[in-house]
């Protein structure tokens, strides 16, 4: 698990739901197919209304036309990030686009769980309204162990909440690795069980 992340930040508001993270029309792709997995990166955050895409100014595409990954590896948002549907395609889309961490005031439960259990990205929480402090394009550095986000562009620092219970699952790379370490699932896929 990467414990220091330095990247350009992409800033969004409150209640960014899963339809904004990956619009339903793209759910026809199968994330189990590596080629199709890339397509989720291409359309990540394409459902955010143009005026609110990349705050505070808006009108900043998260992924440039024709690309599969984003220049932004950290997303900063307000409260209730990932609300709406249970589609795992949402954290998958952010992962496919290259996002390493999201920093939000709060998360919808299923998005948070999917992000952790699938090992797609690190969902961090902060009590501060970072989405009103940080501008899209600022360089930020996250220190996971120190629970700190530094805005390199402005020099300001912000506290993050500790990961708590979910840290060992994130560190293991997702629920399957975690469960294997705990002896809950077999170590190797058993191909003789048919």
């Amino acid at each position: 698990m990467e414990t220091r992340i330095r990247s350009l930040a992409y800033v969004l508001g409150d209640n960014i739901d899963t339809d904004q993270i990956i619009p339903a029309r793209y759910l026809v792709y199968n994330p189990a197919d590596p080629e199709e997995y890339r397509m989720f990166g291409r359309y990540a955050l394409s459902g955010v209304p143009t005026e609110r895409a990349g705050l505070p100014d808006g009108r900043i595409p998260f992924v440039r036309d024709g690309e599969y990954t984003s220049d932004y590896q950290v997303v900063i948002a307000g409260k209730n990030f990932g609300c709406g549907s249970s589609r795992e395609h949402a954290p998958i889309a952010l992962n496919a686009a290259g996002v390493k961490a999201v920093v939000a005031n709060s998360y919808a439960r299923i998005f948070f769980r999917n992000a952790v259990n699938g090992g797609y990205l690190i969902p961090l929480e902060t009590a501060e309204r970072l989405c009103e402090e940080v501008r899209t394009g600022d360089v930020v550095e996250i220190d996971i162990d120190g629970c700190l986000l530094t805005n390199i562009t402005t020099g300001k620092q912000y506290r993050l909440r500790p990961l708590g219970d979910v840290r060992p699952i994130i560190a293991a790379g997702g629920i399957f690795n975690y469960a294997r370490q705990a002896g809950l699932v077999p170590n190797q896929p058993d191909s003789s069980s048919a």
């Binding site: 189990a32 197919d33 077999p186 058993d190 191909s191 003789s192 069980s193 048919a194």
Partner: peptide, 20 residues
Amino acid sequence: DVCGPGTIGVFKQHFGPTAR
């Protein structure tokens, strides 16, 4: 149909292609 294919993919990846 929207989440089944991905779920089946996860199942086969972690429990093996012939798992029940």
